[in-house]
Amino acid sequence: MQNEPLLSVKNLTVDLLTAKSALRPVDGVSYAIRQGQCLAIVGESGSGKTVMNFAPLGLMPTGVTTNLSGSVRFEGQELIGLSEPEVRKLRGKSIGFIFQDPMSALNPVRRIGRQIAEMAELHLNMSPRAAEARALDLVKLVGISDPAARLSQYPHELSGGLRQRIVIAIALAGEPKLLIADEPTTALDVTVQAQILRLLKDLQQRLNMAMVLITHDMGVVAGAADNIVVMYAARAAECGPVDKVLVNPRHPYTRGLINAIPRRDDPIGSEFRGLPGVPPTLGAPIQGCAFAPRCEFAVAACTRARPPMVPTADSNVCVACPVVNQGKAAA
């Protein structure tokens, strides 16, 4: 706790303004990650986990205006309010990205070798020849067979798992300190998912990088992450060390999520345990706790004011729930 975290996000709010509508996909979320650690950000589709990580780094589709408030500090540098050319200097060099769908993340008409090597040229000031050599090393590093031949191939000639390894090689090419992986295994076969996850975890530890793992797969979280942030409807519901949050979830939403995972001793043919109701639509302002309408423990206080994120009895775990934190606010 003595040194400053690599990435520290405080009270981040993101507003998206398109031609037709205004949305708030991220609403006052805070978290931090230290060097060499892996933080999992978990939430269902549309809970804002991707926007939260991409918007401060300028990775939004064109035509969308983002409005950021709060604070995002990377290595002590404030990212909010930074100009696009300055944020661009961080992308690829200090922060590497891995995307959900490797089938579309690579340029279909450029050779794989070039797509990796241009990173080394851009960020490590390498000559084209040195960069090609580095690309070869990277392809070996991510465990691809016949590396030299791969460099002259095109993306459509590789399988999904291999392409994701190439995307990882690209992310690593600039020697980043932080890796942001946006559902890196979602689009892959189940058997390949485990390989890619193991590779990512292994590289993260070997290269002593920090990693933000955006996912909705609790199995991925348990296998790879040190800490976890659970998102619900643009807000953080619970955060803390993975071993504590997964074993002893406190927030009713986290409990529901973990309870929904099928268990080995479930009788065959039994129904899945889902959470009742549907998540709120983005855009409508929410009074109080966003989860209250679906929550079996909800009390009157839940809908009155937005619950603050406060430490629970275990001070490492924070929960935004008035029921869990009952009596603590007064103390």
Partner: peptide
Amino acid sequence: AMSSPFVLTAKSKGLSRTAILFRDALPN
């Protein structure tokens, strides 16, 4: 071409918009 997913990858590499236009969009 500039709204394809691979352009997001190119952006994440730290390439400028102009560089992406010539290197990634033009060949496409």
